[in-house]
Design a protein around this nucleic acid. Structure first.
Lengths: 276, 276
DNA sequence: TTAATATGTTTGGTATAGCCAAACACCATT
DNA sequence: AATGGTGTTTGGCTATACCAAACATATTAA
């Protein structure tokens, strides 16, 4: 593994990126030099030089000059972000299929990949006239209380799933969140049996998600897709009906990537789990 | 203006960002340490440290370990890029440019977006000592008798433009208002050809406006800007001179949002309209 | 097998350049 | 005027970013 030693890092580059994250956290309002310098524990002069550097390359933009100059994220990040998404082949393949899925079940659908233990949304198709669920691209979903997250966890060996949960923890996002490891591992076993994962108000009250994994050539889970909607709406359509619609579309994506369908990919894992 | 002197920059941060751009240029395949180090004219060791730093914060991701380790853009950029888009408010970008425009032509200028068929004013810069035209923020302009409205209509497919006109109607605001659909559609075709829209006393007698569209990354019209003044004053300066000044400033705003200039955005639409 | 030549990783030593403190210019307040 | 905020600019100290070179590892060729 690559060493985590600070010796092999470039300090001022790291500080610059931290500053960028800091500015991102300020959102639309942006941040001022003095505040940013204080928060990052750097002298105004040093922070100023960094801001100028980020500015020159378009990573940040400045609004207002003189006394109340404010810095916010710039256009270069838009370009790089678009490109980063484009580099993930999955999103290109998945989004057209998600359009069909959304058309079929009338629910907002998403595709996510596992990154550093979190589920990162890389594609999205909104249901027409649906309530806008917060599903921004790049959003990091907690793995233990989202359908995509649980589908991805179910694909991993229990060891790895546990390791991820230890890092992310199991914060209580709603009264229905599964907050114990044993409860969640039990749910993952159910997920394997069913073939699709259910998020039953575990992140947001009243909101339900149903998700399934997509697999690539190697047979490993390349990501997961899910549909999101008000719980009552999904119950009306029948959870299992929706679940199998999700699986059917996930399998189409897997096929396009040369991977096996869910039923096949999880066959041996299921065999290992069921007797236990 | 902020100095462009290298003295006020952080060299290694700049190099790191350049490295990021370099990796972006490699696209899906990504880049290898040796190649990247050579291209950026840095020792392998230095480049290695930078890559580790970018990696630790998720700005890049690595695929394959050991001999053929490859680096490509990471998930953090997806998140930051999406956020950057959300943070860009048209009025923020437009107003500073409008200041320049007002200074250049000595006329009050405005920026508006299309909302539910009406042009909504979201930013304004008054000309010094000019007659105060009623240009309050949030004001809903009728699309058929304002420069911003007609510029926006001209950007839409004829179908949609007609649909909007059916909803808003074509009330006669002055003796010069175009009150028939055919007259207006004809005027929109002229607008496409010119690149800028003219409101010739169509809303208020004696008052003339000249407007042009601004475009975002997707190539769609994000809004429009216009200048307003007494008709005689604009004729004195030359309508076409003013029109091209408006276009020039609109293009600056479009560029800041990653969009194309008017000439480019309307090229194919013009081609479709002209023979008709 | 052995050698050769790629790759990525690790190591000191040195000069650079990044950082701080303080002064400066500017604009709001009071 | 005077005060207390901004952002900008300056010198000087020293931390640190960089290079060269050695090391480890893997693929190729003889």
């Amino acid at each position: 593994m690559a060493t985590t030693d600070d010796r092999y890092r470039v300090q001022s580059l790291g500080r610059g990126l931290e500053l960028l994250d800091l500015i991102a956290r300020r959102g639309r309002e942006g941040g001022r030099l003095s505040d940013l310098a204080r928060e990052i524990s750097l002298s105004k002069a040093a922070c100023y030089a960094m801001l100028q550097t980020l500015l020159a390359r378009g990573y940040i933009a400045d609004r207002g000059k003189g006394i109340e100059r404010r810095y916010r994220l710039g256009m270069t990040l838009v370009r790089l972000g678009e490109q980063a998404i484009g580099n993930i082949a999955l999103s290109d393949i998945a989004v057209p299929v998600l359009r069909d899925l959304t058309a079929a079940v009338g629910l907002t659908s998403r595709v996510a990949v596992l990154d550093d233990g979190y589920a990162v949304v890389v594609g999205r198709v909104d249901a027409p006239g649906a309530i806008r669920f917060d599903a921004a691209l790049g959003r990091r979903e907690l793995p233990h209380c989202s359908a995509v997250g649980k589908a991805l966890l179910a694909s991993l060996p229990s060891e790895q799933a546990r390791a991820i949960l230890h890092r992310t923890g199991l914060p209580e996002r709603s009264p229905h969140t599964l907050t114990t490891e044993s409860a969640l591992m039990h749910d993952l076993a159910d997920t394997l049996r069913r073939g699709y994962a259910i998020d039953d108000e575990e992140d947001t009250e009243g909101v339900m998600c149903v998700g399934a994994c997509v697999f690539d050539r190697s047979g490993a889970a390349a990501g997961a897709i899910s549909v999101t909607g008000l719980k009552q709406r999904i119950l009306d359509r029948g959870t299992d009906i929706v679940g199998h619609a999700v699986i059917r579309h996930a399998d189409r994506i897997s096929a396009a990537m040369g991977g096996p369908p869910v039923a096949e990919a999880w066959r041996e894992r299921r065999a290992g789990q069921q007797p236990a």
